[in-house]
Nucleic acid binder design. Structure first.
Length: 874
RNA sequence: GCCGGGAUGGCGGAACUGGUAGACGCGCCGGACUCAAAAUCCGGUUCUGGCGACAGAGUGUGGGUUCGAUUCCCUCUCCCGGCACCA
């Protein structure tokens, strides 16, 4: 073998072998146990960044490990190729999104291949290919037939200057990112998917997802937000009837119907019909409604806004007391949740309390807590006011505990036809219409005579024209008559094609199915899906914990109910990778768009609070930029680190090893390349250890481990098998690749210290090196491919099974126990493995150092923890 | 604001079920090799006191439970992810 480790040579050879042997081609084989290992596909933003390297290395380690464990592994890859960045790039450079996207895919594919991932590239898909997105369209039409896809209005961010809809990301501090104009809310017709119909199943099925992280299940459960409560109707008083033109009632949803007698005001959203009607005759109120209309649609903005409200002057009647209650319009009430109206109980709801205090609204105490003592609710607010307890001041319903009060009040409401128990979900239906070009066309045609007509199946796909270049002022599809001018499929008269495209979450909600049957032009899915699915291991960033994963679960259930799948859940096991963070630097000019600078280009001057951040531009001028903290590596923040230079300098194995060694996968990680050297050095040490063992020969001559070994040899063997045991557990169960690598480092350190050149000694070293090479092969597959051959093996590393632990090598006759006095470490004792507690206790007390600390005193207590420690309490 | 997560040496991290805090690596310091440098190898490296044996302190803050807490409970601070049109 070569004395020097040359990553480029080694990596080329290993990749050539895999390529030629077709090592990663996955074939359906019902006789073997399949393992579908999937990493979330990337958005083709241009170049890989370290987050990708981390994600795909984790996936590759698990795929290769599963293969060694004897599974038939599928690891595919594709491209989440529709989306906003392509349109932004088009605006910046005038390149068509299609061209930009495909160029990026070509470049990033090369980068992925250079990293040596065990991917079956024959199954590659890109969501912008008509062969892929035709099935989005086809399934959309099936959902429409089933009543799962439907049309209604929805609220969007509207830039009044560019006359265009903005994504939330494009709204900065309530203003359009390009124009700086104050963004308005606008209601437009949109298509929705009825995900709320699946709310109960999406929630209850979380219990069965044993292979999912608890935190993800918790986040999804909170997102779905099931709450048991009641809907209550407050009949309009005469003033409200007059304004609304008819009798009626204001309906609210509440989880605290036990506090119904504490209602002192009502609050409705600015878009609520009652607000609109009242606003029409009250200019001041109308101004407030208009004010609410300005600003972004984002929940985070709404929630942090100053709570404001204006009275309508209209009243509703309490369902039991008939007392008139004034209706307010409030900016914190959301039209999209519940009924767009709430009953205000300031005594027992913190938000209502804050609002009432601010507006001088009366507070009526109607609950006495059974936990905390208070007579009457008074400022300031304390959490005790929100506790459940016994009703007071509630007429015939006074003196009841929470559940009894709810039951009694709901029963009484029901007999009067003014309310009932109800379950409410926080989850909202999924709006999929996007007024954007670079996405999957929605396959509908609007005909003046026939209404909304689906594109016939045989005419699918509706192909997106690929030569358009967006300019920021609305959807180019709307300006392209060749696209939207069509004949109505129903009556043949001229009609208009829908120009909205689908949310890109649609594309990613089923791509994992298509990998199983990417070549099928006749059907969306086929029997191969039944073989490969569910995904046995899914790996992706924690940022997808809710939306993508929830939508994919929903999509799977819909397809099941349309008899296209026999699958309840798509992902059996989930590993959520922590984010790779980097510093964010930006500059906001007086006019125009904020620009972001790559941390590599920013020079940090000074210390502490006096730090300044300077960028030298191409023309030599210097610009002071601002530091916006840490954030995920992304194209939009320009803070990605391209792995290319790392791979060129040290090789793919070092890049992979470094990412695995530097932190456990679920933890977020602040980027730093300190330590890359160490990863490289370790690989070189491993190479050198094998080289020294093999000598100048082509490869090692292997010798069996003799049955008689001396103490040092036994010790090395024990460490070898302890390491193997740890590797198997760390990779297979704990997924802590960093500690797996560390354990091999320790083994290699022991090999380096081991100087026994006898035949038995060499056999022990051979075994240790084989475990090191095999154990690391999922992480550093190229160099271990070469080293495996050097160790004298005919077959390729990739085809080897995972090694087995020799239990007999683990046996020990003595243990070292720690001895504490009053919980402080004072000494150690060596005891036979089979020593009983009494013996251990006696040995600990007899220990000289322990005697010194215990002195003449009689120990109060001696705690013996088997195999661990003794604690003497005096 | 709400939901979820995190904080351990100069740095990344380890300690898996409440039982030796700091494995492993980086960096740094000292030494060997070298004309020299790089590379490599050997030793040291939480802090404070001490020549040393050793002693004391120490896991974001403050409190609690326990023979024993990085680990469990409560409080607060800061950081990260998500909040439905970034993906």
């Amino acid at each position: 073998m070569e004395e020097r480790y040359e990553p480029a040579v080694v990596e080329k050879a290993a990749q050539a072998h895999w390529q030629q042997a077709g090592s990663f081609k996955a074939k359906e084989d019902p006789a073997s146990s399949k393992f579908y290992c999937l990493s979330m596909f990337p958005y083709p933003s241009g170049r890989l960044h370290m987050g990708h390297v981390r994600n795909y290395t984790i996936g590759d380690v698990l795929a290769r490990f599963a293969r060694m464990q004897g599974h038939n592994v599928l690891q595919p890859m594709g491209w989440d190729a529709f989306g906003l960045p392509a349109e932004n790039a088009a605006m910046a450079n005038g390149v068509a999104p299609a061209r930009w996207t495909r160029d990026n895919i070509a470049y990033m594919k090369k980068q992925l291949q250079a990293l040596g991932f065990a991917i079956d590239w024959d199954r590659e898909i890109a969501t912008c290919d008509p062969d892929y997105y035709r099935w989005n369209q086809w399934l959309f039409l099936r959902m429409r037939e089933a009543g799962i896809a439907y049309k209604r209005t929805g609220v969007v961010n509207w830039d009044p200057v560019d006359q265009t809809v903005l994504a939330n990301e494009q709204v900065i501090d309530g203003r359009g990112w390009r124009t700086g104009a104050v963004v308005e809310k606008r209601e437009i017709p949109m298509y929705y998917l009825h995900i709320t119909r699946y709310a109960e199943e999406l929630l209850s099925a979380l219990d069965g997802l044993d292979g999912w992280p608890e935190r993800v299940k918790l986040m999804q459960a909170n997102w779905i937000g099931r709450s048991e409560g009641a809907e209550v109707s407050f009949p309009y008083a005469s003033d409200a009837c007059q304004v609304m033109g008819a009798e009626g009632a204001l309906k609210v949803f509440t989880t605290r119907v036990d506090t119904l007698f504490g209602v002192t005001f009502m609050a409705v959203a600015a878009e609520h019909p009652l607000a609109l009607a009242a606003g029409a005759r009250d200019p001041k109120l109308q101004d407030f409604i208009d004010e609410c209309r300005r600003g972004s649609t984002m929940e985070a903005d709404v929630a942090t806004m100053e709570k404001k409200g204006v009275p309508t002057g209209l009243h509703v009647r309490h369902p039991f007391t008939q007392k008139p209650i004034e209706v307010w319009v409030a900016n914190y009430v959301l039209m999209g949740y519940g009924e767009g109206a709430v009953m205000g109980v300031p005594a027992h709801d913190e938000r209502d309390f804050a609002f009432a205090t601010q507006q001088g609204i009366e507070i009526t105490t109607v609950v006495r807590s059974t936990v905390s003592a208070y007579e009457k609710v008074e400022a300031p607010w304390t959490d005790a006011y929100g506790e459940r307890g016994v009703t007071i001041n509630s007429g015939e319903f006074s003196g009841l505990e929470f559940q009894a009060a709810v039951d009694a009040i709901c029963a009484a409401l029901e007999t009067r036809g003014l309310g009932r128990k109800r379950i409410q979900y926080r989850l909202r239906d999924w709006g999929i219409s996007r007024q954007r070009y670079w996405g999957c066309p929605i396959p509908l045609i609007h005909c003046e005579h026939c209404g909304e007509v689906p594109v016939p199946d045989e005419q699918l796909p509706v192909v997106l024209p690929e030569d358009l270049v967006p300019d920021g002022s609305g959807n180019p599809l709307g300006k392209t008559p060749q696209f939207w001018q069509v004949d109505c499929p129903s009556c043949g008269r001229s009609a208009r094609r829908e120009t909205d495209t689908m949310d890109t979450f649609v594309d990613s909600s089923w791509y994992f199915l298509r990998y199983a049957c990417a070549d099928n032009e006749q059907a969306m899915v086929d029997e191969r899906v039944a073989y490969w699915l569910p995904v046995d291991q899914y790996i992706g960033g924690i940022e997808h914990a809710i939306l993508h994963l929830l939508y994919s679960r929903f999509w799977t259930k819909v397809m099941r109910d349309l008899n296209l799948l026999s699958l309840d859940e798509p992902f059996a096991n989930l590993l959520t990778q922590g984010m790779v963070l980097n510093h964010i630097y930006s500059h906001q000019p007086a006019e125009g768009r904020r620009t972001y600078f790559n941390p590599l280009d920013v020079e940090v001057q000074g210390e502490g609070d006096a730090q300044r951040y300077i960028v030298t531009r191409e023309d030599g001028s210097r610009l002071e930029v601002q530091h916006d903290g840490l954030g995920t590596m992304s194209k939009s923040k320009n803070n990605g680190v391209d792995p290319q230079s790392l791979v060129e300098k040290y090789g793919a194995d070092t890049a992979r090893l470094f990412m695995m060694f530097t932190a456990p996968p679920e933890q977020s990680l602040e980027w730093s390349d300190e330590g890359v050297q160490g990863a490289f050095r370790f690989i070189r040490r491993l190479w050198r250890a094998v080289y020294e063992h093999v000598g100048a020969e082509e490869s090692a001559s292997r010798v069996a481990i003799p049955s008689e070994l001396n103490a040092a040899q036994k010790q090395l063997r024990r460490l070898t098998h302890q390491t193997l045991q740890k590797l198997t557990d760390d990779i297979g169960r704990r997924r802590t690749f960093n500690t797996a690598v560390a354990s091999v480092m320790e083994l290699l350190n022991a090999v380096a210290r081991f100087e026994d050149r006898s035949e038995a000694g060499r056999a022990c070293v051979q075994e240790a090196l084989e475990v090191a090479v095999q154990g690391l092969s999922p992480m550093i597959p190229h160099v271990t491919h070469a080293l495996w051959q050097a160790l004298g093996h005919e077959g390729a590393m990739i085809d080897q099974p995972w090694p087995k632990v020799d239990e007999s090598a683990l046996a020990q006759d003595e243990l070292t126990l720690v001895v504490q006095v009053n919980g402080k470490l004072r000494s150690q004792i060596t005891v036979p493995v089979d020593a009983d507690d009494a013996t251990i206790r006696a040995m600990a007390l007899a220990n000289e150092t322990i005697q010194k600390f215990v002195g003449a005193a009689t120990p109060k207590k001696v705690i013996v923890v088997p195999r661990k420690l003794v604690n003497v309490v005096v």
